[in-house]
């Protein structure tokens, strides 16, 4: 099954996005970053594809720094 992840340059940006997702009632799961996406330890955020456009807008409007949005099969 397809899984979608947002990766961050540091955990504080991840927590920043988390609080905006909560404010906007968007479901997400905090996950350890899969090794396939990065060799750095720490958090990433898993999200549902249907929310992607809303999440992108939140990221842009609130200047959340991310490393990127990724999909794993």
């Amino acid at each position: 099954m397809e899984k979608n992840y947002i990766l961050f340059p540091n955990y504080s940006q991840g927590l920043k996005l988390e609080s905006f997702l909560n404010d906007n009632n968007i479901k997400y799961v905090i996950s350890p970053t899969p090794r396939k996406l990065s060799t750095c330890c720490g958090i990433s955020i898993m999200y549902n594809k249907k929310d992607e456009d809303d999440i992108k807008a939140i990221i842009k409007n609130n200047s959340v720094e991310i490393k990127g949005l990724y999909t794993l099969e």
Binding site: Y11, G14, L15, E18, K27, Y28, V29, I30, S31, P32, T33, P34, R35, C41, G42, I43, S44, M46
Partner: peptide
């Protein structure tokens, strides 16, 4: 990440507040 993903993140209907504990673990 793999073992936590396989054991924890495959559980159904987890409480949203477990995200904090996912964070501390990650």
């Amino acid at each position: 990440p793999e073992s936590f993903g396989d054991i924890y993140l495959t559980q159904k209907n987890r409480p949203d507040a477990m995200n904090y504990f996912n964070y501390t673990l990650a």
